[in-house]
């Protein structure tokens, strides 16, 4: 383990996080100067036009992108550890799509009955969907040894769930379609302060608990039998890993819809930079990396074709998918 590389990685990620937060505050369909922003942030002005933009629109969105991006990267890392494969992730295995389907059902039901869904209900719905797809994936992984077959199956399950979701949305009440459609494409725009109040403790608790699993995760990277031989309780460990990973990706899907590739690309980039796969290093770094990655993608999604906004998932795919392809090629050449 190279201490110097890890310190450098922490510093770079810290600086990028700061820079991206500032850029996300300043930039948007109505730009403001650094002076304006500084005044608004420290005077807690939420009455003026810029004040409202910063406090009501941009800040919750920045916090959402940072927390949910981090959650997604950690969720991916947990799944990769579970399957002992760096290509595993909540999006590619169809877990995000499963969550999306159940949340869409809940939303359509609530909208047609004129109910308002509490954040926790949304997370629970997403969690149920994640677990259902995870169960299917685990069932398949018990039957096929090949990881690539498993991934293809995950993609297929994902397509099925997305198709059913599309179907639901098409037949939903006209007035709600726009809202639902935006969410199902993936966006941080709909996250409110009330949502943040729920997201923050859920993500913080799940990431902290993942961090506390660093030690058995490390042993598990030697294979399950070695893990067993040094005293890891495999059943409890596996169950916690899957539960935590599902909670994290479910929280993301509940509020931002499906967000692609972050769960694979970020852990891979972090591994390449730090040259280690030790969970005690990877989990905090993946969280920071996921935050930075999603803040960057959200900045671009908002500003690239302003005032038209792009879906977050198309941005993360543009940056994330090439990383994944590079990783696959790198592995093929036997490095």
């Amino acid at each position: 383990m190279n201490k110097k590389r890890i310190i450098i990685s922490y510093s770079v990620l810290g600086i990028l996080l700061l820079v991206l937060v500032i850029m996300n505050i300043l930039m948007g369909s109505s730009s403001m100067t650094a002076g304006d922003a500084f005044r608004i942030l420290f005077s807690h002005d939420n009455a003026s036009k810029f004040g409202r933009i910063v406090w009501d629109i941009r800040m919750p969105r920045i916090i959402a992108a940072a927390l949910l991006g981090g959650a997604l990267a950690v969720s991916g890392f947990l799944l990769q550890t579970f399957f002992a494969n760096p290509i595993a992730g909540p999006y590619i295995l169809g877990i995000s799509s499963g969550a999306k389907l159940v949340v869409a059902c809940a939303m359509v039901f609530a909208l047609t009955h004129g109910l308002l869904l509490h954040s926790l209900v949304m997370i629970t719905a997403a969690f149920v969907g994640s677990l259902a797809v995870t169960a299917v994936i685990l069932f398949i992984s018990g039957r096929v040894r090949s990881m690539s077959v498993l991934i293809v199956c995950g993609v297929m399950v994902g397509y099925i769930c997305s198709a059913v979701t599309e179907f639901l949305i098409t037949f939903a009440d006209d007035s709600n379609i726009v809202n639902l459609h935006n969410w199902s494409m993936g966006s941080f725009s709909a996250v409110s302060w009330d949502n943040i109040k729920v997201i923050t403790p859920v993500v913080a608790a799940a990431v902290l608990m993942s961090f506390l699993l660093s030690k058995p995760m490390n042993a598990f990277q030697m294979g399950e039998r070695y893990a067993l031989s040094v005293g890891v309780n495999l059943k409890a460990f596996r169950l916690s890993l899957i539960t935590l990973s599902s909670i994290l990706s479910a929280t993301v899907t509940a509020f931002a819809g499906p967000v692609s590739f972050v769960g694979i690309a970020v852990p891979h980039l972090i591994r390449s930079v730090t040259d280690t796969s030790r969970p005690i290093v990877m989990i905090p770094q993946c969280f920071l990396g996921g935050s930075v990655f999603c803040l960057l993608c959200d900045l671009l999604a908002r500003n690239l074709f302003a005032p038209t906004e792009m879906s977050i998932s198309s941005m993360t795919a543009v940056f994330g998918a090439p990383v994944v392809i590079a990783m696959l090629i790198g592995r093929k050449s036997g490095r």
Partner: peptide, 23 residues
């Protein structure tokens, strides 16, 4: 599999039963 692990890290995992919460 032990991907991206140094030999030292692999060997150190033998201390697993003796180390604390975070290993």
């Amino acid at each position: 599999p032990a991907e991206r692990m140094s030999c030292m890290e692999v060997i150190s995992l033998g201390r697993y039963p003796y180390t604390g919460r975070l290993g």
